[in-house]
């Protein structure tokens, strides 16, 4: 899968979960900058990403996935 496809899919999941529109989406999203991205929302994002990419994340990876940059890095290794 191309890098752009991975990023687009991740952004689609994050935008939907965090209810963002295109205009509010920067290059990278960081968990701590979004009050909506709490621990419960994080789990729903992980579930959506697992479904979108057909992968499973380890608990340690789930903790590390606190920015879209880190999410890209972890997913890229699994594809």
């Amino acid at each position: 899968m191309l890098e752009k496809e991975i990023i687009d899919k991740i952004n689609k999941v994050l935008k939907s979960a965090l209810k963002l529109n295109n205009n509010t989406l920067g290059d990278y999203l960081i968990k701590d900058k979004f009050i909506e991205w709490d621990s419960l929302k994080h789990i729903t994002i992980i579930a959506d990403l697992e479904s979108e990419f057909d992968v499973l994340f380890e608990p340690e990876e789930i903790v590390e996935m606190n920015s879209s940059e880190k999410i890209v890095e972890i997913i890229r290794k699994k594809l």
Binding site: I43, I46, A47, E50, S51, L56, F57, P59, I62
Partner: peptide, 11 residues
């Protein structure tokens, strides 16, 4: 459950 799309919140 993991193979049925459940995510572990707490091991």
């Amino acid at each position: 459950l993991r193979s049925n799309n459940y995510v572990i919140i707490e091991p």
